[in-house]
């Protein structure tokens, strides 16, 4: 009996997606080292990668990168299928949904900064929905929403600016 080898044929695009997801993962790991005053208030640096991929390669690739990052990240942190994992997943899914709409905004007027802010708000909305419907069905969590919303606005803007800056550098080179 010959040993059976499973061969996966990875296209150049697959490699590209994997590389981008790896960069996003690196940023997630980096971010985990930053102390946060409130669990859940994070800059979301990995979304910079998602934004750049969205602008350059389209929504499908961005979705791949974002979801691979969520799954691989949870395996790295050891929280796959734990509440924390479902929080990132719901946030990522709702962000992607909103980005699929936001990308059709006229590019002359709306850039990565808008995309980033909309996605950041969608992210906390997805997370709060999971928290409320599943983890803590108590009105008390509503008191945290203003804090998360403020963080989403600030970090969304900053991430959008960083993404725009990066794309600028690539273009001029």
């Amino acid at each position: 009996m010959t040993s059976s080898t499973i061969k996966l044929h990875a296209t150049a695009e697959d490699h590209h997606v994997a590389r981008m997801a790896a960069v996003a993962l690196g940023l997630t790991l980096l971010e985990a080292a930053i102390p946060s005053p409130l669990p859940g208030v994070k800059p979301g640096l990995a979304n910079i990668v998602t934004l750049i991929v969205l602008a350059k390669y389209g929504w499908r690739t961005a979705a791949w990168v974002s979801l691979l990052r969520v799954f691989a990240g949870s395996l790295l942190f050891g929280n796959f299928l734990t509440p924390g994992f479902f929080l990132s997943l719901s946030g990522a899914l709702l962000s992607l949904l909103v980005l699929s709409l936001a990308q059709h905004l006229p590019a002359r007027w709306f850039g990565p900064v808008s995309h980033s802010i909309y996605a950041a708000f969608a992210h906390i909305a997805g997370q709060m929905a999971v928290v409320y419907l599943w983890l803590i069905p108590h009105a008390g969590i509503a008191y945290l929403i203003p804090i998360f919303a403020t963080a989403a606005l600030v970090f969304g803007t900053v991430n959008g600016l960083i993404a725009a800056r990066f794309m600028d550098n690539v273009k001029t080179k």
Partner: peptide, 25 residues
Amino acid sequence: HIRPGDWLTLLSGSVAVVWLTLSLW
């Protein structure tokens, strides 16, 4: 890097945050 529409997004985002804070707190 902020395009005209982005200012609009920023503005409506800020309004949303203020409104959320006032109504929830």
